[in-house]
Design a protein around this nucleic acid. Structure first.
Lengths: 202, 202
DNA sequence: TCTTGATTTGACCATCTGGTCAAACTCACG
DNA sequence: CGTGAGTTTGACCAGATGGTCAAATCAAGA
């Protein structure tokens, strides 16, 4: 294990390679379905060498999850109470959909964790996520009070946005099995736009 | 392994117990995250005894999946082209939501499989599911042509229904982390009802 | 160039896991 | 009862897996 000085060039490169490889493997097979050997091979390292940079398989997984949680929640952070309500919400949705398209591995990493009861990020959910959602819920509710958007249950509105947008990454196989050659996001974008416009128009 | 005569009383009981236990374990930990010992313990059997009834861990999993697929798709089968369009669709959605509530293990069993690329049911997806969806899509499109419901992309309409309803089972931890004590389905039911009414009203 | 810390690895270990097997036990039925 | 099929299990095995360690190799600054 490297000392806690400033990381060397090699440390930076290898740690990054490991996390990248782990993202591939964990998102495709889940925690228990992934092996350290697999990750090491994908990162171009030997197993002992990988374990020189991270103390354990679990440590890699934890670091991935906590490192990516911020990225994952960023779009919601950006929801601006001073912007136009409908446009702010639609922009959030569009950005979430874009993340499904561009970061499907991240989406599936979280999906794997959540489906199995989120044993490793339960705390982050009921603290960081809950806090952020509650903060934004206040804004949504105010908009509803002002008649700027239709009144709906704000939590369920949030759930629906997450469900709809992440569905395209998490259940990509199913989507592709139905759509065939058609590009999923080509149709998804106007669909969700229409859906939330109709739902939220007062 | 029992001969292929009519199953005895004990065979019926034990096979049922094994499948029930396996549903618990597989839905909570995924295929690779589950062990035969776990399933055997949950079923109240020894490992060798369990393997007397099923040839392998994989065989249990496969039987579970294929056995439950029909149940899972039943609500869509029931979509009746002769009924009232809006009410038929809303009834389908309500039934899917109810299944999320009453059969969360089944939902998570499929979710686990799908997130990881559906290695074991890929075929069923692109055959049975695709076929059923295409059949019902024809009905939806006709309703749209007749102006009975608003025109939206029928495949994406289907995805949105699956995503929204199954979200409550598959990501239950997250939903509960946000909602706290509040009953998820209490709010979900009117929310999705409103959502699809607004979306589909011409 | 030399030295020292950083990096890499082959060999190894303990444990877990899916699966086997022969022997023992139980049950239903003639 | 007795008997043969159905059922159960302790002991066991092979391979996979997470992780360790001492020794070897490498890299960069003095």
């Amino acid at each position: 294990m490297p000392k806690d000085r400033a990381p060397t060039r090699i440390q930076k490169k290898n740690r990054a390679a490991i996390l990248e490889a782990a993202l591939n493997v964990f998102s495709a097979h889940g925690f228990r379905g992934s092996t350290v050997d697999q990750i090491a091979a994908e990162a171009g390292l030997s197993k002992p060498n990988l374990l020189y940079y991270f103390p354990s398989k679990e440590a890699i997984h934890t670091e991935l999850l906590s490192g990516l949680l911020e990225t994952w929640l960023a779009p919601l952070h950006d929801l601006d109470e001073d912007g136009d309500p409908m446009e702010e919400i639609l922009a959030y949705i569009r950005r979430k959909l874009q993340m499904s398209q561009e970061l499907p591995r991240e989406s599936r990493l979280f999906a794997n964790e959540l489906v199995q009861g989120a044993p490793r990020i339960h705390e982050a959910l009921s603290k960081d996520l809950k806090e952020l959602v509650d903060e934004k819920t206040v804004i949504l509710t105010r908009w509803m009070d002002q008649g700027k958007i239709a009144r709906v249950h704000p939590y369920h509105l949030m759930f629906s946005i997450w469900a709809l947008t992440q569905h395209y990454a998490d259940f990509e196989v199913q989507v592709r099995a139905i759509l065939g050659e058609e590009d999923p996001f080509e149709g998804a974008d106007p669909f969700v736009d229409t859906l939330y416009r109709k739902l939220l128009t007062p």
